[in-house]
Write a protein that binds this DNA or RNA. Structure first.
Lengths: 335, 335
DNA sequence: TCACACCGAGAGAGCGCTCTCAATGGGCCT
DNA sequence: AGGCCCATTGAGAGCGCTCTCTCGGTGTGA
């Protein structure tokens, strides 16, 4: 930096001002400094900068997955579910204009300690926390750290924290309505894990709406949000209730598996049985027939999370607030 | 830190020594300091530390994907292909004991500039670079930066850089051998993209071995390593060559798609046509029938990449070296 | 013409840590 | 017993940057 200052014939302070875009610099001097920077190939030292600004200009995207008793590692699940790619894309797009970097940290409950230590050390200015598991203690721990944070869904315990969510119940209702409108009269659902709020809310919303329309009870089977789980649950569901003609599956990945099971069982979709998914992820387009599904604007939600987080970082005392997005129905070929 | 020093009745220097595990500290004093640290809840400031040590204790995992003309974003591809989850898991496991953090940076060619800037700024001590695309300029750019780096595959241009790879040709040979041993006599392959070394090498190895066994020409169709691509290519291949009885698909994801196509076409697997994949990823277990495939020890390879990188970081002048892993055949039900 | 205000640039003090170098003290050798 | 050496600890100088405070210079109004 001293080199640059000397090359431009100014003081370090002025070089700093130019780099940080301070308005009070003469245009000519600014230009000289910029040329000097280009000539010397100078790159600011981030450590020194954050030492004084107490900003790292990066935020963590912590993806907290419960450890389930299956043979797939949580990393594998995270990198296989298109949902997380959309989250990353959305957050990145919002952060990039502010030149803030995203550090992706996948975790399961076994290394919460590591994550907390990382956050405490001040590597990042704030946290985007993707946590859906009800028993997950990470939201509370992060909250107690006092570091700015935004959570991806309504927290299960009453923590004063900002969050962004989609109206899950409304989404389920859209699915139910559509199935009824098509003429389906024997509805069923493969729910998500019931220890996850989104799983619970979608099931609740689906049942609640149907009961107002004269369907007091609906065959339900609990799934795990994976493709293989969807396939297995569909098989089991149809074995128990062979005459189902409308199926709501709580996410697209399971719906993809369910469609495969239905095909194996010789059911035509949507003629014999109509299927509606949830998410509108890329998996919906991998399905045959193409999946009718409830669209969750995941990218926009992640971007909003990032915006809210940046606001919290900029204004430390800011009160938590929540933002709810509306889902919409995307009609394709499966229903 | 001063607080801790005062509480323990020692100097800052001694506190620093305790934190960094210097051996020359009296056991009693060490203990006092540790208690003081616990009492005060002291956490070292990483920025100040890296300012003086010139180490960030984190490395970047840069996943560079070519931008292909499809409707899925590269982020979606990265977060959908199980391969990257395995890479992350392997690298993490090797880095964790050294308390080094992994910053995952997905990128396509449009933001190489951003990535390079990030690396130049000294956020990380080194780079694990996952880059397979032949025209990818990132390996060269990273190399020119002079920052320690390890690449995931044999670089296409002759760059003096360490890399870790699997013996692709041998893997393809294992597949070919297995198909012949089963009695298949009309073989074909769905290759990977031919502008990617792994795609090319697998095709080459497959053909080269078969020609030594009296099969001078093998029907080949170029795929794109995606599930949908595998399905489409399998359809096309079988339309042109209806009597194929043995198929080598250059990765598991495409093989999954191919199996789906074969099922649609009414071919029984493996009785009518045997299928061998490549990777042994979790997708192999999503297949019906379970996929016979060439196992690539991706986790181990990623861990090795991390080890080599740490060696480079510890010894700046170290000469580049390459490590090649052996693939193995995993026999399941599809062949 | 003078005083005042305001704008732009420089000087210098840290940010919190590590690490070298010097100092102190105890043990051991002669 | 004296001296020397090694083992520990303390003191203090930076690491590279930002930012406040100060100062010089120019413009404006009376």
């Amino acid at each position: 930096m001293d080199q640059v200052a000397e090359a431009a014939g100014v003081s370090r302070a002025t070089v700093s001002r130019v780099i940080n875009g301070a308005p009070s610099v003469d245009a000519k001097i600014r230009e000289m400094v910029q040329r000097a920077i280009a000539d010397t190939g100078y790159v600011p030292n981030v450590a020194a900068r954050s030492l004084v600004t107490r900003r790292s200009n990066s935020v963590a995207l912590v993806i907290s997955e419960p450890d389930r008793p299956d043979n797939h590692s949580f990393l594998n699940r995270i990198f296989t579910d298109p949902y997380f790619g959309r989250i990353t894309a959305g957050a990145t797009s919002a952060l990039r204009p502010h030149d803030i970097h995203l550090v992706v940290i996948p975790t399961d409950s076994t290394d919460h300690h590591q994550v907390v230590r990382y956050l405490r050390q001040g590597h990042v200015d704030g946290v985007l926390l993707i946590s859906s598991h009800e028993q997950d203690t990470l939201p509370r721990q992060v909250h107690d750290l006092g570091i700015p944070a935004v959570v991806s869904a309504r927290p299960t315990s009453p923590i004063a924290v900002s969050y962004v969510d989609v109206d899950q119940r409304l989404g389920a209702r859209l699915a139910a309505e559509h199935l009824l409108n098509r003429g389906c009269r024997t509805l069923a659902t493969i729910s998500g894990p019931l220890d996850i709020p989104s799983g619970l809310d979608r099931l609740d919303g689906f049942r609640a709406f149907l009961s107002t329309r004269g369907f007091p009870s609906v065959p339900t089977i609990e799934g795990d949000f994976t493709r293989a789980g969807g396939e297995a649950m569909a098989r089991r569901l149809l074995a128990q209730h062979p005459n189902i003609d409308g199926l709501f599956v709580a996410n697209d990945l399971m719906a993809e598996g369910a469609l495969r099971a239905l095909q194996d069982l010789g059911r035509r979709v949507p003629d014999d049985i109509a299927v509606v998914g949830f998410d509108d992820s890329s998996a919906a387009l991998d399905c045959r027939p193409l999946l009718t599904t409830v669209r969750q604007p995941v990218e926009e939600m992640a971007a909003e999370m990032a915006e809210v987080l940046m606001a919290h970082i900029a204004t430390p005392g800011r009160l938590p607030r929540s933002v709810t997005f509306q889902p919409s129905l995307v009609i394709r070929n499966s229903a």
